[in-house]
Design a protein around this nucleic acid. Sequence first.
DNA 1: CGAATTCCTGACTTAGAAATCAGAAATGAC
DNA 2: GTCATTTCTGATTTCTAAGTCAGGAATTCG
Lengths: 215, 215
Amino acid sequence: MAEAATTVPVGKGGRTAARIRDVALEMFSRLGFERVMMAGIAAGAGVSQATLHYHFQDKAQLWRAAMLHLSALISAEERRLEATADLSSVAQLREAMRLFLRISWKHPALGRIIALEGMAGGERLAWLDSHLTGPRNRRLVAIVRAAIAAGELKPFPAEQLVITLQAAGVGVINLAPMIQQSFGIDPASPEARQAHETMILDALLGGLMIQPEQT
Amino acid sequence: MAEAATTVPVGKGGRTAARIRDVALEMFSRLGFERVMMAGIAAGAGVSQATLHYHFQDKAQLWRAAMLHLSALISAEERRLEATADLSSVAQLREAMRLFLRISWKHPALGRIIALEGMAGGERLAWLDSHLTGPRNRRLVAIVRAAIAAGELKPFPAEQLVITLQAAGVGVINLAPMIQQSFGIDPASPEARQAHETMILDALLGGLMIQPEQT
DNA sequence: CGAATTCCTGACTTAGAAATCAGAAATGAC
DNA sequence: GTCATTTCTGATTTCTAAGTCAGGAATTCG
């Protein structure tokens, strides 16, 4: 068996494994674990189903490999936040949210996975919490608490606020199929993304701040 | 076979069918269609698996019956909105959102179903759009457009705004398992619900309004 | 009560998806 | 080029969950 969770593909096998993993990430995040079929991933990656079992023992391992890859992608992006440590708490929150939005557009699997497994509970959620979502959630809560303590943010329960902001942020990204169905439009155009960022960061976050900016 | 989609159970069979349907709604909405097993619903309802097939032909029919029941529950609640027709657009939006939040706490299946099927697309989403979510989405968009035209709301894309508000509203409800996992708290206490309503209706919606209320 | 109907079940069949495996094909080191 | 190794596949098996069915139990209505 080849290396499974590596991020940088090497050699023929590595490239194949990476392709499988990418297809799996897309499918798992859109559909959830059980409605994805190994045959579908194999077809999407252009290999036989047995090849999936060659590179990854079973479906659960493949799922974890895909999630670890996603985690690595996200972590790489979040390095940028280290530069914001000396800003005010509310500015840190704003930058963290801005980055979260950009990551979510770039890697829509993130928000979908959070929604899918965050609702269902169970062992996959526990795994995700320790590897992907828990640390960020708790970091954001700490920032929110500091912002509230500094009188910059209205004193809502920090956990609620963090989850709500994230849910609001990924709403139109996750629900693109529903938006297509209900309204016949695609919410991913550049203008729509810009309006979205403004809406979340200025309007919604503004509404949470103690001294909201006027229009 | 007994009547399947009736809301008011009648007779022994009707009660059993209603129990099955309620268990199915809870499970389907939390886990999605395919991770729910007929055996699990049967166990939850305290009947044999064959009884499910007696009252509902197959799994897809049971799913639709559960969703129709949910739809009836929601429709009954939304009757209350008829009284708000003479308010300003933004006040109508606020009342609609307040009701949406109350319904979502009372029937958490609604938001979960929207999230699950709204991400996945496919025929179940099409079915839901015509029976459950589409009309409300389009009604809300019309209200938002009117509010923007009246200069009461900031001019964000109406569809985006509606979806985002709903996503923000149900975030902490849907993601209760993740909140439990990440923070060890339950977001459904009465105080938490009150704070939640205030956060959504005053802070977030306030941030979207042209003349936000000050704290 | 008693018979007709409705309701429910255990045992079984079927379908479909995951996992395995022996061997073929491709790759790469020499 | 050739041989060892890695990578991949078609065919098959195993497993799981949906769905069927004949008949027994409960209910209802005369």
